[in-house]
């Protein structure tokens, strides 16, 4: 839950319409620019103490807020 809140707070900066549902496709918002992608990786690493690497580069890991939360939880569990 807390993870979701933090990710949502981060995303708010990049989303004009702040009301993106947790299962809404972020790619469809037109939000995913290279600038956003780089910010997101650094944010996840710093905020949650995980290392995002080449094995995580799958669009399904970043498609929705729920997917990002699942990725973080998976990485934390295996760390």
């Amino acid at each position: 839950m807390e993870t979701t809140v933090k990710i949502r707070e981060f995303l708010e900066k990049f989303i004009r319409d702040a009301d993106v549902a947790d299962d809404e496709d972020l790619f469809a918002t037109g939000l995913v620019t290279s600038l956003f992608a780089m910010h997101l990786v650094l944010f996840l690493e710093k905020e949650f103490g995980v290392k995002v690497d080449n094995r995580d580069l799958d669009f399904d890991n970043f498609r929705t807020i729920n997917a990002i939360v699942a990725l973080i939880e998976k990485k934390r569990a295996t760390a």
Binding site: V32, S34, A37, M38, N54, L57, D58, F59
Partner: peptide, 18 residues
């Protein structure tokens, strides 16, 4: 291949250019 298809510009080139 470095990274995965679809991530070549945003992530791989992005890190290099930064």
């Amino acid at each position: 291949m470095v990274g995965r298809p679809g991530f070549g510009f945003t992530h791989v080139a992005g890190a290099a250019l930064d």
